[in-house]
C-alpha cells in the first residue's frame, strides 16, 4: 500500500527528556488515521516534527514520498494543517486572513473559502480578535481545507466545537476522504476517533504502543456501568461476574467496569429493584490499561476525560 506518511525511528529529544521515541509508522493513502494519546504523550511533537516546525533528533520521515526536512516547502503546498491551539492575527478579519493565506500559497481559493465558511456557518467578515474557541477551530479548519490538500494533518481538531459542529466536522472529513484525501488526526477522545477513523495509533510517553483498526478497539468494549439499587447493592453477586472489575460502592449506587458482553450482567441486575442503569465511555487511560495491564499504568495517576 502507498504510505502517505512514513516514519523510520523518528525521535525527538529535549535534553534528557524524550518527547518522541523511535516512531515507526505508516499512514496509507485515503485512510483516516487517528493518533490517540493523553496530553503530553507526544502527539503534537510528532505532528510538528512531520511538518518541519521542529527538527528530529534522529530518524527520518517522508510525506507524500518527500523528505520532511529537504522538501518541506513542497510538502507544505500539498498538506493542510490545523494546529491544536490556533494563533490568529487580531488586526485582521477572517476574510483578510484567508486572502493572506491564499496569496502566500499563490492560489485563488476564495470561492472555496466562501463555500467552507457557509458550511460551517461562519461569518468571514468577523474580526479575528476575541473569537471563541469554536470559531477559532472553524478558521483553522477552513485554512486547512481551502487549498484542497492531499493530506490533512489535524491536531485535536474538535476540541471546543459544539456537538452540532462536531457532526458537521465528521461529515466534512468523510467527504474529504471520499475525494481521496488522507487524514491524520490526533485526539485524546476515544469516541471521536471511533466515529471517524479507519485505524488508530495509541501513543504513550512518547512511544507508539499499538496500531489497531477501529474494529479492534470497539471489540475491546470496555465501559463503566453505574447501577442505582433500591437498597444496599449486592456487591458480592456482581464480584462473581468474570468480566467485571474495579467495583465501587457509594450508598445505593454500584459502579464497576465491564469488558465485553453485558448479557450476564443485565440478567443479574434484573433480579433486583433497579432505579437507574447508566453506562459511561471509558477514558483513554482505561482502554490503555485494558490493553497493556497495570504494569504500564501511569506513575502520575493522571487520567483523561472522555466526551460522553
Amino acid at each position: 500500500m502507498d504510505a502517505v506518511i512514513h516514519t523510520e525511528h523518528l525521535t525527538k529529544q529535549y535534553g534528557d527528556f524524550v518527547a518522541l521515541s523511535d516512531l515507526n509508522l505508516d499512514v496509507y493513502r485515503g485512510e483516516i488515521f487517528g493518533y490517540l494519546g493523553p496530553n503530553g504523550a507526544g502527539k503534537t511533537t510528532t505532528i510538528r516534527t512531520l511538518l518541519d516546525l521542529i527538527r528530529p533528533t534522529s530518524g527520518s520521515a517522508t510525506i507524500l514520498g518527500m523528505d520532511i526536512r529537504r522538501d518541506s516547502v513542497k510538502i507544505h503546498a500539498r498538506v493542510g494543517y490545523m494546529p491544536s491551539e490556533m494563533g490568529l492575527y487580531n488586526n485582521m478579519t477572517a476574510r483578510q486572513y484567508f486572502r493572506f493565506l491564499a496569496r502566500a500559497r499563490r492560489i485563488s481559493a476564495m470561492d472555496e473559502v466562501e463555500r467552507l465558511a457557509k458550511r460551517l456557518d461562519f461569518d468571514l467578515d468577523h474580526s479575528l480578535e476575541g473569537l471563541s474557541t469554536g470559531n477559532k477551530r472553524k478558521v483553522g479548519l477552513i485554512a486547512a481545507l481551502m487549498h484542497k490538500p492531499e493530506l490533512l494533518i489535524l491536531d485535536e481538531p474538535t476540541s471546543g466545537l459544539d456537538p452540532l459542529m462536531q457532526q458537521t466536522f465528521n461529515e466534512m472529513m468523510l467527504e474529504a476522504k471520499s475525494e481521496g484525501c488522507t487524514i491524520f488526526l490526533s485526539s485524546h477522545y476515544l469516541n471521536e476517533v471511533q466515529a471517524l477513523c479507519d485505524r488508530v495509533g495509541i501513543l504513550r510517553h512518547g512511544k507508539l504502543k499499538a496500531v489497531n483498526t477501529v474494529d479492534e478497539l470497539t471489540h475491546l468494549n470496555v465501559r463503566w456501568v453505574i447501577i442505582t439499587f433500591d437498597d444496599t447493592p449486592p456487591v458480592e453477586s456482581f464480584k462473581k461476574l468474570k468480566n467485571v472489575s474495579n467495583i465501587q460502592v457509594q450508598g445505593n449506587e454500584l459502579k464497576f467496569q465491564v469488558a465485553g458482553d453485558m448479557d450476564e450482567l443485565v440478567k443479574l441486575a434484573a433480579n433486583y429493584t433497579v432505579h437507574a442503569f447508566r453506562t459511561q465511555e471509558p477514558t483513554l487511560e482505561e482502554v490503555f490499561l485494558q490493553f497493556y495491564g497495570n504494569h504500564e499504568a501511569p506513575t502520575t495517576g493522571h487520567t483523561e476525560e472522555v466526551m460522553a
Partner: peptide, 14 residues
C-alpha cells in the same frame, strides 16, 4: 508566542 508562526511556517514558503 502568539502561535501564528505555526501557520506561517507551514505555508509553502521557505
Amino acid at each position: 508566542r502568539n502561535q501564528t508562526m505555526d501557520t506561517l511556517a507551514t505555508l509553502p514558503i521557505p
